[in-house]
Amino acid sequence: MKAKHQRLILALAALVALVGAGLLAASALKDEAAYFYAPADVKTKGAEPGKAIRLGGMVVKGSLKRAADGITIHFDVTDGKATVPATFSGIAPDLFKEGSGVVAEGAFDAKGTFIATNLLAKHDERYMPRELEGMTYNETTHEMKADK
């Protein structure tokens, strides 16, 4: 095979791979752009039941209840504008508590309850889920505000 042809074929293969990868990334990211939800987004845009998303907000004070089985908890997540109910089965992170921030991974069920499969809470004083940075929770009004 001539060297010229070979360069052409290699360049074409690279181009096809590049374009394919770009398309793949674009389509995957389009879904991802809708990956993180605040409760207000759920209310305005609606969230498809069964679709894996991240729900972020604050755990409403007084909403945390433990089921009789000892491992399931029910709580409400709020961003100050809307509130959605959530359920989690498992061992919650130590810093998961009422009035503090949480990012939950999971999906909504048909009734509109968020079934969390994983909870990302503030890890320690220094670590906070990126999505919750710059948000503060008002202890008295139970409202959450963005700083900016």
Partner: peptide
């Protein structure tokens, strides 16, 4: 703010 998580990476 957008988060890209495991679903994206697993899928691609």
């Amino acid at each position: 703010k957008v988060s890209v998580g495991a679903p994206y990476f697993d899928r691609i």
